[in-house]
Design a protein around this nucleic acid. Structure first.
Lengths: 154, 154
DNA sequence: CTTGACCTTACCATCATGGGAAGGACTATC
DNA sequence: GATAGTCCTTCCCATGATGGTAAGGTCAAG
């Protein structure tokens, strides 16, 4: 099977198949006399595995681990489950971040009348301090650098 | 104010301030005789605007539009609201994608006993076809390609 | 004058993916 | 056998926003 056919069969683009090979995620494919890459069913199955893992959001780095477990017939399913759980947790974290953004924006947008007038709480918020904070604006003073005796946080 | 102070005051790293300048998101800063960039309160305020917009997930491209509206005293708040709504919708879309991934993974992980045995529904799922597809594998024969009577594109 | 903190530019890396160019390989058709 | 068309090959570039590093100039204080 040529790379194009393997791509169609696996859902991974030819470009990415070559890339995965170059990074060592998949072993170097066999070649015909003229240099064309050749793929077997087994290799296509591995590509499908990769594709599916990507669809679930796994970074290639993690897919490397998943593939290793996949091939390892004496694996512990606990290791697989751990990887999955980490991925779930990562997704959860990102979802929460985005939900927070969305909610903030939603509040702002709800408060914006959205007509021809220029007054806009969205811009007002963006233009104000971080998180509608204190009037600390006065602190960004004129002089260049205070001695700054100690600075724990940042 | 030096770039380092502007960075601290705005929450945007010096690196990013230079980057934003290079891409034209912000105007070229003034310079001292020796070439140091100088920032006024107004410019720091703009940087804070950018920072806050980034925190809400706006891509720099959209921030350009937001900044333009911010500066335009005859803007229509409807335009701002539209940008915000687009951002909300984009966030919503990504959240849904990730939620779908997470749920799929959660189902798989729930079905995985996670012990020392190798049997694992997670790997089983990843290793199977895309949503348990056809056994089309037989089609990848030796011949290169069917006539494929017509294909407009490309 | 030395030290150290700061600034400058310029380049490289990320992460996964696509685009394109230049050229070889293969198949079908004339 | 020549030609056309589609495939393959490698190599380079771009993305988006950010960080890192290196080599060198500047500034303030000791």
């Amino acid at each position: 099977m040529n790379i194009g056919e393997a791509a169609k069969a696996s859902g991974v683009s030819a470009k990415m198949i070559r890339y995965y090979e170059s990074t060592g995620l998949i072993p170097t494919a066999g070649r015909t006399g003229s240099g064309y890459r050749v793929y077997s069913d087994t290799e296509v199955q591995m590509l499908r595995f990769i594709r599916r893992s990507r669809d679930l959001g796994f970074p290639v780095e993690k897919i490397e681990e998943l593939l290793a477990l996949w091939r390892d017939r004496s694996r512990h399913s606990a290791d697989v489950k751990r990887l999955a759980q980490e991925q779930i947790d990562g997704l959860e974290r990102k979802i929460n971040e985005m939900r927070a953004m969305k909610e903030t924006l939603q509040h702002l947008a709800d408060a914006c009348c959205g007509d021809q007038r220029p007054d806009c709480p969205i811009l007002a918020d963006l233009g104000s301090g971080p998180t509608t904070m204190n009037g600390d604006a006065g602190a960004r003073g004129r002089q260049r650098r205070q001695p700054e005796p100690h600075r724990a946080a940042e």
